[in-house]
Amino acid sequence: MSGIAEGKVVVVTGAGGGIGRDIALAYAKAGAKVVVNDIGVSLTGEGGGDGPAKMVADEIIKAGGQAVPNLDSVASYEGANNIIQTAIDSFGKIDIIVNNAGNLRDRLFHKMSEEEWRQVIDVHLHGSFFVSRAAAPYFREQESGAFVHMTSTSGLIGNFGQSNYSAAKMGIVGLSKSIALDMARYNVRSNCIAPFAWSRMTSSIPAETPEEKARVAKLQKMEANKIAPMAVYLGSDAASEVTGQIFGVRANEIMLFSQPRPIRSVHMSTGWTPELIAEVAAPALKGSFFKLERSPEVINWDPI
């Protein structure tokens, strides 16, 4: 195998199935040596074992690539360090991190428990930090490296019943930008992908009303393997000048997302009071307020 990631060593978390599996396979096909990380549990936490990670690693090896499984949890600092150590022990270095591991504990905000909040933040946000932080000293020393993080339009735009997931995914955007800024001097890059794909994650979306069924039908047309090319590109040297960005991948469509910037301002030379804000500032800014919308209402065209 040879390709755009020839000679690279990559860690792909949550790679036992869905988007992560396809990314791991694509990296191997592109010439990378792969650490296939997955704890082997369902989205809701049931099960566990080496099955998924080992199966993907074996699939890569059978096809002529190099891979090792890893079962550590990204949700602990120790587990994250063990994941990176697996790469060092097996292949002698680490070049690319793909923070893909995820879970869901969907619940309307006013009904969400502390446990449901913490479990999602722990895997998505803490997991992305822990694994990235474990790799950072190696990237700094070798003065190269790439992080690819998974965000979501649930955070970038909004969705029902996912305050934990949305908060984590927006937190990952801020984490990625901070990594890009802090580690640019070491030629280390960090970018995000917002994937649109039918996978283990999206299979839990409710499909009871006609509108929900129609939305799920559209999602089912979006294959998980469509995400992998962007993930491989961002980890490769071909993307050496790409950092701090947020991309969306939706079937055969690639999007570049905007990032928060001031869009309008008002000034009062004598300073503002609450009353003046209500009388002058708020009406002046109101025309530029963003509507309260969900992801499917903003990205409302059919996948290509």
Rank of each mutant, 00 (worst) to 15 (best):
L108P: 08
N300P: 14
V120D: 01
G17A: 15
A282S: 14
F196V: 06
V173M: 00
K93W: 11
A238Q: 12
G161H: 04
C192K: 01
K111N: 14
N300I: 13
N103D: 07
I277W: 12
T151Y: 01
E143P: 04
N99I: 01
V34A: 09
T86R: 01
M55W: 15
N187K: 08
A80L: 10
A180D: 05
V249W: 08
L104G: 10
N103H: 03
K33L: 07
I277P: 07
V12K: 12
E297L: 10
D106W: 07
Y138K: 05
V188E: 03
S178Y: 04
E253K: 10
D38C: 09
G14N: 07
L234D: 05
P137G: 01
R140Q: 12
D95L: 03
G49F: 03
L285N: 06
I121G: 00
M230E: 06
L292S: 15
I172H: 00
E275D: 15
A168V: 01
V12S: 13
S2F: 13
N187L: 01
D58M: 12
G7L: 13
P274I: 13
I61N: 15
S190I: 06
S113E: 09
T151A: 05
R21K: 15
S2R: 13
R133Q: 14
S199W: 02
D58N: 14
A134E: 00
Y233R: 00
A207N: 07
A282P: 02
I39F: 13
I179Y: 09
G287F: 01
K221F: 02
A194G: 00
G16P: 02
A281P: 02
E241A: 11
A251L: 13
E293C: 14
G48P: 08
N159H: 07
G161V: 03
G161C: 06
V9Q: 08
P260Q: 05
F130C: 10
V266Y: 07
T151Q: 04
E116Q: 11
A238E: 13
V74R: 03
G3S: 08
E211C: 11
A5I: 11
P283D: 08
N37I: 10
P69T: 11
S73F: 14
A134K: 01
Q85M: 09
E275I: 09
H267W: 15
P195R: 00
R189F: 01
L71F: 15
A24R: 01
A87K: 03
G18Q: 08
N159Y: 06
P69S: 11
A87Y: 02
S166H: 00
S190L: 04
S113D: 06
A75N: 15
A26W: 00
R264M: 14
G45S: 10
H149A: 11
D89W: 05
F147N: 05
D72N: 15
V74T: 10
F147P: 00
A146D: 08
L285R: 05
D89I: 02
F257I: 05
N99Y: 00
D106E: 12
Q245V: 08
S178C: 10
E293N: 14
A180N: 05
P283L: 06
T202P: 00
L25H: 07
R200T: 12
